[in-house]
Design a protein around this nucleic acid. Structure first.
Lengths: 331, 331
DNA sequence: CCTATATATGCTCATAGTAAGCACAATTAT
DNA sequence: ATAATTGTGCTTACTATGAGCATATATAGG
């Protein structure tokens, strides 16, 4: 075993897959592109395909090729997220299939480029993570179901393990006076998974779970195939982090927009309400946008000025981004 | 081609390698663990080994196993960085070898655990990135060599490509009034690579370069095998980002330490000087440390109080970290 | 002992950024 | 006309940050 050289024969049991969480914001709602399952019994999943070592010069190029073939889309902004390689992340592995690694990517698409297709749908992010949408106050599902269930899961154990579980819940969900960090999407999903509160957990383990847990799983968001919901959680967490220090939000906006549209887009991703006046001041002070001089087609109130993104900011400031003046979450 | 199913035969030409940038801080100098090359003609590299899909349950477990076998170290803090898969990242691929992917990791080790071994050495980070060490003012090599060379490389071209190169230089090196962002380690390395200013560039391309460029390469840091310097640049960038919003610096400190030792460790990684009084205020205000009541063995001046890390902070604050009050870089 | 030097620690002050909210303007729906 | 909706300017209190002064306590060397 020690310092054995690579053995191609032993290593051929690996498949490298490229998967993409492709995000857009339409009508103030955050959307993600999902490939429709082959039959109604199966679950939907992210666009993905195998990496081709002879055809693809880079991993990213392979991803772009695959997405283009599967959905017809030409991706713009693309960023590598994480490589997933846990044993049995794909159930087929149990049946003797090769070990599947998946290199996950986050891609952003402008609203204008969004079109439906025969194979893929645009689905609201929060259908998979209903507990992450705090735009209209703390999600009801937290107090009504998730936190009690997590507390029960914590109390299944004793001693140091119980303490560890308490700590993790506290950190992820901001209980016991700790604060809710909107970036900890993955931590929250993984806790729900471990506590058996999402469908994938009971499916992956193959165990029967108690009936009222099954009922609970029906309301903890829609399930995805394999570990794609985990990949998606990683993507949302990264995206929430990134809009705070890089102007990626503009990858999702049309060429011109009102400040309120911009705010709605940020809120859609961040999952919380923003203070309007402060948001405008922030965006203006950072020099992120410049007025076009035109006014928007009215949308119910006083007409708003149209702005465009100032590409020059990246040269001027070290970390231009929307450092959300998020209102304190009242739980 | 279109939507072709995975073909195991075609895909078997992939090797997945796990590589680790293992960092520590000893004597106020940032160190990285390097595996010694087999002969003096070869270049050193990061500890790494192939991923074993049958033996390793997770990628991270595989990494820990490999590092332990190669260096005898049991890693503590480990974090996945990035997966590298560019064609010909390993020169052996040109000779018909399989396509090598590498999943890069960042690991942190306490000073107390650092011991040399027969196979591996602890090397100062900045031996590979001399332009990143601004602790004693802006590195001389920037003005004397790097920036003029980059300007020449920029001026090789005309029109939009020239503008693109100017923008990239400006963003990465903070020229023309822009500010130096200590996290953009990878962008800087890649610019030097593209401009042919590091040894790996001429080696990888196989071209002869003009003699005075070779001379220049001698002072732009030590070369590493394959693309390991790129992986290392990714690691340093990530580490510099992370210490600002997560208390990872304490993964590198001994159980108790003086505030000045802590400051020196942060400076070593961040690559710039800090304002002492403000640093102390910051660390105290964030509640990152607590006094032990003991005093340090003197180190030349008034004895300092010994502190320890307060593990509880992670529960109290959303993003505890050392938000460096870095002094403005005088170039 | 005295002095230079190095580190440790407490404190001030000016400035910038942030959270919260008041006030008012310009439009549409009823 | 009036309510509702959205846009925009401005104030106020508070907090964080950058810079520096002042002083405390040690060591090293004459």
């Amino acid at each position: 075993m020690k310092s054995a050289p690579p053995e191609p024969a032993r290593l051929s049991g690996i498949v490298v897959e490229l998967s993409a969480a492709i995000a857009a914001v339409t009508d103030e709602s955050p959307k993600i592109l999902m490939v429709r399952p082959p039959d109604t019994a199966a679950r939907a999943g992210l666009p993905c395909g195998p990496f081709d070592p002879t055809g693809h010069r880079t991993l990213e190029e392979g991803l772009r090729t695959w997405v283009n073939e599967q959905t017809g889309l030409a991706l713009g902004y693309v960023e590598q997220l994480y490589t997933f390689g846990n044993k049995f992340r794909d159930p087929e592995e149990r049946a003797g299939g090769p070990r599947p690694l998946s290199v996950g990517y986050l891609a952003l698409l402008r609203q204008t480029e969004v079109k439906s297709s025969a194979k893929a749908d645009w689905v609201d992010f929060y259908r998979y993570f209903p507990w992450e949408d705090g735009r209209k106050g703390a999600p009801a599902i937290l107090d009504s179901l998730i936190l009690p269930r997590l507390a029960a899961w914590r109390d299944e154990t004793k001693g140091p393990e119980k303490q560890r579980r308490r700590d993790r819940i506290l950190l992820a969900f901001g209980t016991e006076g700790a604060s809710w960090d909107n970036e900890r999407v993955l931590e929250r999903y993984e806790l729900l998974y471990e506590a058996g509160l999402v469908f994938e957990a009971s499916f992956d383990s193959g165990q029967k779970v108690e009936p009222n847990l099954v009922a609970a799983q029906m309301v903890t968001g829609a399930a995805l195939t394999k570990d794609h919901r985990r990949i998606l959680a990683t993507a949302l967490g990264r995206l929430r982090a990134k809009i705070k220090y890089r102007p990626v939000i503009f990858e999702l906006m049309p060429p011109t927009f009102t400040l309120f549209q911009l705010q709605r887009a940020v809120e859609a991703l961040a999952g919380g309400p923003l203070h309007k006046q402060n948001f405008r001041r922030l965006v203006a002070n950072e020099g992120l946008v410049e007025p076009t001089g035109h006014m928007s087609a009215q949308t119910g109130g006083r007409p708003a000025e149209l702005f465009r993104f100032r590409r020059e900011v990246v040269h001027e400031r070290p970390a231009p981004g929307v450092r959300l003046p998020v209102r304190v979450r009242k739980s």
